[in-house]
Structures are given as structure tokens and as C-alpha cells.
């Protein structure tokens, strides 16, 4: 189990690193395109399309690591007040619901991509096939599903034993100081 957890966290982190690279690429592409357009009157025609699809991939590949860091915000002040055991049961149910929903979305997103390949849909201007980008988003959703699966197992364990095994929450940078302020 620990191994599976580590594997999932590792995978999310790798995907997130690729997403970071996408972020830098989008910025560079837009700026280079502006320079080419203003200085040399020769913009890159495909910029608009490359930017939107790279952004989509960037977001898709970050979803999982965002979940690892508990970055998908939730309202917790109600559940917080319940007994720990009840909390664990509620979390288990929510995690099962969410992970099955996203699992279904992974499968459907792949089907969507398949359909795009089959009917030959390409981007309007550069005629780049769209399907590969959709598959990459599906990979991101798959990783998200796996993270939620780990969380399901965790909350299930808690519900039965209340033993504390939790996914290591990595440091969240900018906000450390604020967190400290809130805790004291």
C-alpha cells in the first residue's frame, strides 16, 4: 500500500513538472510571437492554437498533484465538528463518489479523443490534430483518479482503525507564513 501511495505521488509530481514546463513554454511562445510581430512583422501563425492546447495540457497534468496538496478547495467547517470516525466515513463516501466519477471521465475523455481522431478533427488554422492533447488531459485525469483512490483507502483505514496514515502534504510555499499566523 505504501508503495502504491509513493508511486502515485511520484507520478503526480512528474506530471506536475511537465506542467511547469508547459507554463514556461506558453509564456515564452507568447512573448516571442509578440516580438516577431512587432519587430519583424512576422508572427507565428499557430501561436493562438499552440497556446490554448499547451495550456489545456498544463492544467490537465496539474490536477493530480493539486489534489495531493489538497489544493482542490472544499468546505470543511461542518464536517470538522463531527467525531473523527464519522468524518472518516463521510470522507470515504465522498472519495468513492469522486474517484468513480473521474474514472468514468477518464474513459469518456479517451473515447472523445478517439472520436476526434476518427472524424479527423484538426485545429482550424494550423490543422494540428487535437486528439493527442485530449489524451494528455485524460492522463492527468487518470492520475487524479489514482490520487483519489489512495485517499479513499486512507479514509477507509481511518474509518476502521482511526490509525493515522496520511499522504505527506508537500510544502505549499507562498503561504507558509500565513498558515503560521492562523495557527497561533
Amino acid at each position: 500500500m505504501k508503495k502504491f501511495e509513493g508511486l502515485v505521488t511520484g507520478l503526480s509530481r512528474v506530471l506536475n513538472n511537465i506542467a511547469g514546463f508547459c507554463m514556461v513554454s506558453v509564456m515564452a511562445l507568447v512573448v516571442v510571437n509578440i516580438l516577431l510581430r512587432v519587430l519583424f512583422k512576422h508572427p507565428i501563425l499557430g501561436t493562438y492554437e499552440y497556446v490554448i492546447y499547451t495550456t489545456a495540457v498544463m492544467i490537465g497534468l496539474t490536477l493530480a498533484y493539486c489534489a495531493v496538496q489538497n489544493g482542490h478547495i472544499a468546505v470543511d467547517f461542518v464536517v470538522e465538528r463531527l467525531p473523527l470516525k464519522v468524518q472518516a466515513v463521510i470522507d470515504t463516501i465522498m472519495n468513492v463518489l469522486a474517484s468513480s466519477f473521474w474514472a468514468a471521465c477518464v474513459w469518456q475523455t479517451c473515447k472523445y479523443a478517439q472520436k476526434m481522431t476518427a472524424n479527423g478533427t484538426v485545429s482550424p488554422t494550423t490543422q494540428t490534430p487535437i486528439a493527442p492533447f485530449i489524451y494528455l488531459v485524460a492522463i492527468g485525469l487518470l492520475a487524479l483518479t489514482l490520487v483519489l483512490l489512495v485517499k479513499t483507502i486512507e479514509s477507509l483505514k481511518k474509518a476502521f482503525s482511526l490509525s493515522d496514515i496520511s499522504m505527506p502534504a508537500p510544502n505549499v510555499g507562498a503561504v507558509e507564513s500565513i498558515q503560521k499566523a492562523v495557527t497561533h
Binding site: 510581430r37 512583422k41 512576422h42 508572427p43 501563425l45 499557430g46 501561436t47 493562438y48 492554437e49 482550424p124 488554422t125
Partner: peptide
Amino acid sequence: QGLEIRATGLSADTLKVLGANPVAMP
């Protein structure tokens, strides 16, 4: 020639052939 004209898809191809400078944006 070289004039920046907004166009996407087929129209971008058309403008390129005519020597304009198509810029794709929504």
C-alpha cells in the same frame, strides 16, 4: 503585402496566399 489581418482557419490560408500577414485570434 505584409499587412496584419485577423483571420483563422481557411481565411488565414487565403490571406497568406495573397501576401498578407494573417494573425489568428478569436
